[in-house]
Design a protein around this nucleic acid. Sequence first.
RNA 1: GGGCGAAUAGCUCAGCGGUAGAGCGCCUGCUUUACACGCAGGAUGUCGGGGGUUCGAGACCCUCUUCGCCCACCA
Length: 728
Amino acid sequence: YRDKRLVTWDPKLHTAISDLEVEPREVKGHFWHLRYPVENSNESIVVATTRPETMLGDTAVAVHPDDERYKHLVGKLLVLPLVGRRIPIVADTYSDPEKGTGAVKITPAHDFNDFEVGKRHNLPLINIFDMNAKLTNDVPEAYRGLDRFVARKQIVADLEAAGALVKVEDHTLQVPYGDRSGVVIEPWLTDQWYLDAATLSKPCVAAVEAGRTQFVPKHWEKTYFEWMKNIQPWCISRQIWWGHQIPAWFGPDGTCFVEETEEQARKIADAHYKQPTQLRRDTDVLDTWFSSALWPFSTLGWPEKTPELARYYPTSVLITSFDIIFFWVARMMMFGMHFMNEVPFKDVYIHALVRDEHGNKMSKSKGNVVDPLQVIEEHGTDALRFTLIALALQGRDIRLSADRIGGYRAFVNKIWNASRFALMRVTGNVAPLSSMQAKLEEPDRWILSRLANAVADVRKHLDEYKFAEAANAMYVFVWDELCDWYIELVKARLMNEDAAGARSKQVAESVLVHVLETAMRLMHPVMPFITEELWQKLPIERSTAFIAQQKYPGDELAVWRNPALENSYALVQSGISAIRTIRAEKNLGPTRPIDAIIVAANADDRKLLEEQRASIIALARLQKLDIQASRAGAPEEAATKVTDRLEVIVPMGDLLDYAAEAAKLARQIEKTEAERVKLTTKLDNKAFTDRAPADVVARERARVTELEQMLVTLRDGHKRAEQRATKT
RNA sequence: GGGCGAAUAGCUCAGCGGUAGAGCGCCUGCUUUACACGCAGGAUGUCGGGGGUUCGAGACCCUCUUCGCCCACCA
């Protein structure tokens, strides 16, 4: 509908702008107290204003109906200084007796609140500004044509000269600026086109309440609701060049015809005027957000009923920034519900805002934009992309951190080097995994199980829009599991040129290539460049030209999942780590060949360790490994490391510092004992054993048993070390 | 005035009812033939304060403090 009301007018760009494009800025200004005399009386009323120039357009002064100070003056007239116009004193609850003098000047044509007061009291609207915010001919001659800020100075001076200026106070106030033009916007009375947004918004609120569209993270719904439920009429016309021209035609007498086409409008107009009539099209264009609101269906061929529209509307997900919720998301909802009678998207993912290093929002007009090309120059495209994804946590903004980008650049490098290793060691095309399932060795089955886990985790996180978690799952799998364990585990097999090891070598090659190939597909959306490059190089059969055309890894990996194997394999890893810890603590160096004894009380554990003897020897760099049920026969001069299920003993000969060893064991005993006491106290608490879930209680009991076993071993070792220390 | 979010290791941040974590930084040792953008090992926390719920609380509830943001208003 067309209406004459106040709009937020940009006097530089000469157009109405949206409330959302208005940016309040805090400015130091003044409070001017002005005295308006009551006609034919000695009395007067003092009003306070931050914009004295608007007094030229005053058409009333309002006081609160219950304000005893002014009750007797309501209905009387004031003489407006400098102008001489008689203006009424009206009673209106808009006036707040607590604020200022309790009397407020009313300028209906230049203030939104005053406009409403004016409507209630049938006050005239006096437009004192033109489109440039210069004073019009409706003001005394002395001020005509003056710019608003020039006029302000002049008027204050003249009021002072006339004795109407009571006092001036310093005052800090919020002044509305146009966010594009950077000038103070002016509430201005114009004819504009409006949408009845309140009516359009109702089904949109209902749709989100019913969950037909869901916000992720959910709390943004509140922002959406708050705005939708307090929505104002939407001024959709703009006095600018670019945009969809409004389909409205005016006849000579100002009658308006709104039709889809000019032809249609002319037909209606001719009928209306009963003769062929010249029409003039409205030169205004639609607010850009009006046009954008049509996007979800207009791009699919609407208003035609196209197959695309049937297939893709409603869309699955809109990914956008929170500051677009009002501008675009809400408006697409309105038009979707109105024109399609269906929501435009099922999910709205509100992503984090990337802020600059100081935490400020980046903006083109502020100029504090981090240039991605520069970051890419320094760290690489894939590193930047991975960093953004890794930092994209729900409900939290991103401060782009150079350190994090550097860390992920190292990750990209790691992927490159791991693949380089594989390409160096794997010769010829590899066989499909299915053909060698029976020949897989423990480490092979372990990494395939971990891969299946990683794929499942990544997919789950992506489904939930948890991008940072998805990135982390990729990172941990590739670096901590594939590189740090699997590649190290298979090195010996890959480098073995003996005929006897040929089959084992081939299996390792196939598994390594298969795992890498799957990892490339898994990471491709985040790191498109390196994954494409490496995928092209892998010795595999390629069914498509590009990795992007391949299927994303999914459920087909699930057959490899093997939690029991992973659990038992953790024992082997903890044994290797224990030996490495002794190496580091005793300064044995990473490469010096040493002997080690692993004591495991459990027969199944020993069996598993025996099977993995070669891996343990290789990764712990041992020259001799004994796996036994008890400590019997182990030398006294030994460093030990005790874990939940095993004790690792490294004979040290004269190298061992017994006092230090005893002290180290004493510290571990103290910590273990403290944990045991804590758990025992917990288990002694009847309230806990009665009320906590059975599995929690059982787990705690098992843990106490483990700790008790550890303590026996630790105390035994401690006693021996202490005896030796005193002997020497 | 209304609303939202945040406070956890030196830094950037996960965890959101059952033994406090990651990356970076820091410390120790390493030319280990994929990688020093690396490898192995290590240290580091009254989880902002105070109440409460619970067998059990960074986690849930209340409250306070401090930061950040959004909306409205400001004669």
